[in-house]
Design a protein around this nucleic acid. Structure first.
Lengths: 396, 396
DNA sequence: CCTACTTTTTCCACTCTCAGGACAAAGGAG
DNA sequence: CTCCTTTGTCCTGAGAGTGGAAAAAGTAGG
């Protein structure tokens, strides 16, 4: 199939495309109920969209008491590529225009190998997805990287854990390789977008999305839009001081949240506990695998291991204290916790909640849900698809 | 004079009114350069504005090499009232439509006396300004109160330091009394608006405005708009924990920033130091006045008193640590420090800067100015006038 | 003082958008 | 089969807006 290249010609068309993306196939009459346009105007715009082939007719809708309306849907051949590059692994997924995941693969990968090696792997993963027949090509791609991005240009800037990526023109390079429009953003922002589109944050205008993985970051959504800050580093909460004169951190300071709790810190603490024989459960797992990760701590905790539970509670408390400050400052309508450590589950969530509800004023916490993300590893790739679709479904 | 009641009929007119407000009198031709409208369209809209009497003709402009253009300005009879209710005093000012202060008075006043008593005083202060001939009436009023506000309705919600104000319909009541449109907001947000309009933040889209007065609060501006949070309590940073297991705070927690540094905390610390004879300078001032305030500490510091300087540095360090966290999170383009303690001047600023530049990552601090507000006590009332003018200069 | 050139303003014809009514088409309920 | 509802199409008219032409009001230079 020939790839779509059309873009909506005006705000009305963009609005209709987003309605169809978020609400699925819809009848012309239903669309009319949702946009404030006269029937004639709506008919004109829909006809123009049909001409671009961005949307297609899709049979007749059920009657609402009178003449049946014609259904409209986004072209079912449209395909978006969602790429979520983490510190230690890559997720690649294909979605349709409604951002439903049609295929999703994950592979281990060290981001420190640099952009060239990583993109080679990403492209081969995309090719693999294509080979299964899910897609013949891509109409757009969203890319998430674990560091700050100068958003308009799609270029990482001074990323601490991504040596070799600084200034690399990710957007342009991938756009060339894939032959389609590309947008690049921080992985945490994409997780927030994903949870907003298809997860727990669907109805909330202002929320925070805290991602605890190898590091810790926070997506900030203001009025339904991701806030990126002046230099694209907003949400970089991993280096907020959580413990005065605490552990040294790679950034040169002491007591950073990330040094005390994150996937990496947890693994190190667990290993230490195992080696010092404080935890038979963890020691056994270290013996078996030769290494420990957050997953092992989660398993040990599930088995009732006191040391593992303590580690989680301790980390949750630290994280909760920092989040409490952010809640006082930002007064969000929702806090989402996500990332690799969601496996730590309720123990972690309880510790965070305790600290936030205790450390912020009632007006800010009174009706503040603090919940785990519900999309898991899919949040990033859905957010990536959402990013590029927002771009493509806006007036040219 | 009959009060203006007209509102711009469309976005173009609103745009023009704001240009005239922010740029002062302007020729039709200059306006044409700034808005993207054809000459004919512009002429039509300007003529309609002239009909509403919101703007008036103002002679001929200087020639730019050809025929001289006609000047246009906002009606010079328009008057806005700016009211900034603090914890211990009230500022009331009259501005013209360009938000220039024509008259400004300040009176001590305890906000705890409740809305009825406070508004009685505000109205009498407004009457006093009227009596000087500065205004014959008001076309709109902006009100700042020292606590969270449910913005759309203009009603304080659960304000910690304003017993008796919770749920009081400030906007409606004052609108009745003054006979003009009224908007109500948190005093810190208005200070941010003021510095944005006429102060240091004129060209910055995203910035923080930290007000250190009786308490501590922070105005948040995102994309040029004040961000108020889900329940109107965004920016309430006074109760972020600054010192683990620190001093008890009125809110019930320990170690809140406000308990360690604010106008009130500083006065208490200074009194204690004076009583314990740690500081002859402060002791002398306590002897003379019977009480100490931030002003005395500033004076003592200026005289070289080591204890006073230590108090300021210590407080600046605490504040700086909290701001460092906020900078990491929010990545602003500017941080403004304002409020009653600006008298502490460079010592305070230096301590804050040190902590922020040390405690946040270079990407966030690299090009981050941290400065004192340049409007002083006028920031609040200018912000208040700006608030109501933004409301009135938007399409009906 | 006169001429040539600029800038500003007005006027006008023309295009486009869009709303809303009339009407036709298609279906449901009795 | 009739009456009513809903949906889609067609048409007309109001209003927004553009851009060119020309008039009005200057400046600059001889």
């Amino acid at each position: 199939m020939r790839r779509m290249t059309a873009r909506p010609a005006n705000a009305h068309q963009a609005r209709l495309l987003r309605l169809l993306r978020d609400g699925g196939p819809n009848s012309r009459a239903q669309l009319g109920d949702q946009v404030d346009l006269s029937r004639s105007k709506l008919a004109v715009e829909v006809d123009r969209l049909l001409e671009t082939e961005l949307v297609v007719a899709d049979g007749l809708a059920a009657s609402r008491g009178g003449r049946r309306s014609h259904n409209i849907r986004l072209n079912p051949h449209l395909r978006f590529l969602g790429v979520d590059i983490g510190a230690t692994s890559v997720d690649v997924a294909v979605t349709n225009a409604e951002l439903e995941i049609l295929g999703h693969i994950n592979q281990p990968m060290d981001v420190r190998e640099g952009p060239v090696a990583v993109f080679e792997q990403v492209l081969s993963m995309a090719a693999k997805l294509k080979a299964t027949g899910l897609a013949e090509g891509f109409d757009g791609a969203g890319i998430g990287v674990p560091g700050p991005v100068r958003f308009p240009e799609g270029i990482p800037v001074a990323p601490p854990i991504m040596p070799g990526w600084d200034g690399f023109p990710v957007r342009e390079a991938l756009s060339q390789e894939l032959g389609c429009p590309v947008m690049v953003d921080n992985d945490v922002n994409l997780m927030a977008l994903g949870e907003q589109h298809a997860g727990v944050a669907r109805t909330v205008a202002d929320f925070l999305c805290v991602k605890i993985g190898t590091g810790i970051g926070c997506g900030i959504v203001v009025g339904g839009e991701v806030y990126r800050g002046t230099t694209g580093s907003a949400g970089d909460i991993g280096h907020i001081q959580a413990v005065p004169d605490g552990r040294p951190c790679a950034c040169g300071n002491r007591g950073c949240l990330e040094a005390h709790f994150s996937g990496a810190a947890l693994a190190r603490d667990a290993t230490e506990a195992a080696e010092q024989q404080h935890s038979p459960e963890l020691a056994a797992r270290l013996e078996a695998n030769g290494t420990l990760s957050a997953v092992d701590v989660a398993a040990a905790a599930a088995a009732g291991d006191a040391t593992a539970l303590d580690l989680i509670r301790e980390g949750g408390n630290r994280t909760g204290q920092v989040i409490a400050g952010l809640v006082s400052f930002f007064n969000p309508g929702l806090v989402v916790i996500g990332g690799g450590v969601t496996g730590l589950g309720h123990t972690l969530l309880a510790a965070i909640r305790t600290q936030v509800y205790r450390g912020s004023l009632p007006l800010a916490t009174g009706n503040l849900p603090i919940v785990l993300g519900e999309l898991g590893p899919a949040a990033g790739v859905i957010g990536a698809a959402r990013l590029i679709s927002d771009h493509l479904f806006s007036p040219a």
